[in-house]
Design a protein around this nucleic acid. Structure first.
Lengths: 350, 350
DNA sequence: CAGGTTCATGAGTATTCCGCATGAACCAAG
DNA sequence: CTTGGTTCATGCGGAATACTCATGAACCTG
C-alpha cells in the first residue's frame, strides 16, 4: 500500500484514522461510510488494516455493531485531535497564501451544528479551494471591527449601528413545531393544545415568549405555559426533548433528522412561523471576496443546498421553500436572545 | 491521487509532510531524499504537490538550494509536531496491544546481562505475548511487599523471612573456572597453581573467599592470594580480565562467549563447583500467572534453553547438564555478597 | 420462514507514490 | 572558455494504495 516515504510500519495512514474516527462516532462501518461518502467495504478494510498495523483490537465486533475497546477508547481522542490539528495547520499556513480563501463566518450555534455544517460538504465539492472558520454567536458581529466576513442569524429589528450598511439575504423562515420523544406522547391522534399544556414544556431561556405565542388562542394560563425545565440554547432543548424530559417547540430545520430517525415525533399538527427568518448578513467589503460571493451564490441558488439526506439525484430546495433573492439592506437582525416583534404567523388548524 | 476518504483537498498527505520536514532539515531535496531513503524526484514531487495543495510557497528556490519561506517557517513546527504526535499516538495505543503480559523479574546483574537476557529471544519466539521488566538485585526480594513475580539468584542459606513460602527451582550450578586474556598467559601448557598465584589475581569483593577455596590445597600464602585488583561485581571482574589486568575466577556461564571468541582463555584445566546454584524463586501467587508458568516451564525444560549460539537444530541443554525438576521450598538464597557455606567441590586434576 | 442489515472478503479499477532518465541551471576547477 | 559535478523539475512507466461491486455468513425482526 502507499505508505509513502519511509514511515514505520506502525504509523497509521490518514484514511485509516478517518475511518476509525467515523466508526467510533457512528457505531457501524456502514454508517461511517455514509458519513464519509464511502462504502462499508472501504471502511471495513481501513479499520481492519489499522488494527493489524497496530496489533490492537480497536473495536469489539458485537453482533452487527462496533463497540470501542479500551484501546480504541484511549486512541479516539488522539486520532480526532490529530485529524483536527492537521486541518488547522493547513488552514493556518494557507492564510499566508493568496490563492486559498478562508471564509470566516459567525453563526447561531444550533443552526450551525444542525443545518449549516452538515451541508458544507456539498459546497466543498463545488468550491474545494474555499475553507471555513466558523464561530458561534448569538449576536450580530460589528463588521467594522470584527474580521468576520459574514454571519448567519435570524433577522429582526434593532441592533443599532452594528449593521450599518450590511446586506441581508433571507435563507429560510423560522418555522417552529412541537416535538417530543415518542414515549412521552399518548398513543393515537396527536394531542390538542389543552393536552399538550399538561405535559412538561421545555423552555428556551433566550426565547421565553415562544410558548406564549403558541398558546395565544388557547386561553391557557401563562404560569402553566412557562413552567418546565429551562435551557439556554435550542441545542440543549433538543437534547432534553430527546431524553424525554418534555415537549419542545423547536425550529423545524433543527429537528429534521431526529424526526426522520424516530428519536422525536411531532406532537402537534400545527406549526408557527416567526417574523424573523434566518438570514445571511455581510458587510459591503465581503462582496469583494470571491469566497464569499461563491458561498452566497450557493446558499441562495434554489438547487444548491440539498436536504441533509442528500443524494446525487435529489431535487434541491426541499427544505427551503421560499428563499428571498434580494438583500434587505439596512435591516438589523434580532439575535436569538431578543424577543421578536410582531405577531408570529400561525399555520395549521387553530 | 490517494487522498483517501473524504479528506478536504487542502489536507496534506503524510508523504508530503515528511518530505517537507526533511527538506527543511537538509536544505536540498536530494539530501532529504537520502535521509528518507527516496530519490530526489520523489521529494521534489511531494513538495511541489504540497505547495500546490496549500497554495503557498513553502520554500524559495535559491539557485540550487531550498530556503524556507515565511509560510514554510511557520508551518515547520506544526508539521514536525504532527508527525511526532502521530507516531507517539500509535506507540501509545500499541501498548494496549494484544493481551500482552509483563513478567517482572529481579536478577543478579551479571547473570542477567550475560546469561538470561541473551537467551530471552528464544523465549519470545515461543511466547511473543509476554514481555519483561527485569531489575538488577544482589538480594532476594521480599515477595510480600515487592510486586515482582520472580527472582533469579544463587541459592544459599539465610535471608530470613524474605522468602517465606517462596519456591525455588535450580537452574544450573555455579561452576567457576580461571580465565585470563591470552597475552597474560605464557605460551604452551596451562600454568599450574603455583604459576597462577604469581600472576595478579582479580578479586571479587562480595565473594572474597573464592580464591582461598581455589588454592586450598596449594599451600599458597593467603596474603598473596588476596593481593590483586578488587571489584564489586563479577561483571567488573570479567571486564578487568578482558583488559588483561589479571587472572579471574568466574562462573563458567558468564564467560562462555568470551572463551569462544578468544578474548579470554582458560588459565587452568580445573574448575570448582560451589554449593550455591542459580535458582529461580517465586512466591506462590506467581504460579497463577500464565506468563510466569510459561517462563518457568521454558527455563526448566531440558530442551528449552539453548546455548547462546543457538541454532534451529541445536540440541538443548548443552549448558545445563543437571537442572532440578522440583522446587526447593523454604530455602533461602545466598546473595552474591555472602560467603557460601560448605566445602566447594573441586574438579579436574588436583 | 422471508426480508433486511451488518461485517468481512474476493476480484477488479482508479489513483497515488515513487524510480529512472533527462534537460536546464548553477558552481568550481583547470 | 570547457569540463565535470550537483541541483531541481518533469516525462514516462510500474508498483502499491484506496476504493467499489458483489457475495457469503451472521444477525435481527415480523
Amino acid at each position: 500500500m502507499n505508505q509513502g516515504m519511509t514511515r514505520r510500519n506502525y504509523t497509521p495512514t490518514l484514511p485509516e484514522l478517518q475511518a476509525f474516527a467515523a466508526c467510533a462516532r457512528q457505531g457501524t462501518a456502514t454508517r461511517a461510510g455514509a458519513e464519509l461518502g464511502l462504502t462499508q467495504s472501504a471502511i471495513s478494510r481501513a479499520l481492519g488494516s489499522l488494527e493489524a498495523r497496530l496489533g490492537v483490537a480497536l473495536f469489539h465486533r458485537i453482533r452487527q455493531r462496533l463497540a470501542l475497546s479500551d484501546a480504541g477508547r484511549a486512541f479516539l481522542p488522539e486520532a480526532e485531535r490529530l485529524l483536527a490539528d492537521l486541518d488547522r495547520a493547513a488552514l493556518t499556513v494557507m492564510s499566508f497564501g493568496g490563492h486559498r480563501d478562508v471564509l470566516r463566518l459567525a453563526c447561531l450555534p444550533t443552526f450551525a451544528t444542525h443545518w449549516l455544517i452538515p451541508r458544507l460538504a456539498g459546497f466543498q465539492r463545488i468550491a474545494p479551494g474555499i475553507s471555513f472558520d466558523i464561530t458561534a454567536t448569538l449576536t450580530a458581529p460589528d463588521f467594522d471591527r470584527d474580521p468576520r466576513d459574514a454571519a448567519i442569524l435570524r433577522a429582526g429589528p434593532g441592533a443599532g449601528a452594528t449593521l450599518r450598511g450590511a446586506g441581508q439575504d433571507v435563507l429560510l423562515e423560522e418555522r417552529l413545531i412541537v416535538v417530543a420523544a415518542p414515549a412521552l406522547l399518548p398513543e393515537g391522534d396527536l394531542p390538542g393544545d389543552a393536552a399538550l399544556s399538561q405535559l412538561p414544556l421545555l423552555q428556551q431561556a433566550t426565547r421565553p415568549d415562544l410558548w406564549l405565542d403558541w398558546f395565544r388562542d388557547a386561553g391557557t394560563a401563562p404560569t402553566r405555559i412557562l413552567r418546565g425545565p429551562r435551557f439556554e440554547q435550542f441545542g440543549m432543548v433538543l437534547a432534553a426533548a430527546r431524553a424525554g424530559l418534555g415537549v419542545a417547540l423547536l425550529p423545524e430545520v433543527l429537528v429534521a433528522s431526529d424526526l426522520a430517525s424516530g428519536a422525536l415525533r411531532a406532537a402537534s399538527p400545527r406549526s408557527m412561523v416567526t417574523a424573523t427568518p434566518y438570514v445571511l448578513m455581510a458587510p459591503p467589503r465581503s462582496h469583494d471576496l470571491p469566497a464569499f460571493t461563491a458561498f452566497r451564490d450557493w446558499l441562495l441558488c434554489p438547487g444548491a443546498v440539498p436536504p441533509l439526506h442528500w443524494s446525487q439525484a435529489a431535487p434541491c430546495g426541499l427544505d427551503r421553500p421560499a428563499a428571498a433573492r434580494h438583500p434587505v439592506a439596512g435591516q438589523g437582525p434580532s439575535p436569538q436572545g431578543q424577543t421578536p416583534q410582531g405577531q408570529a404567523r400561525k399555520e395549521g388548524k387553530p
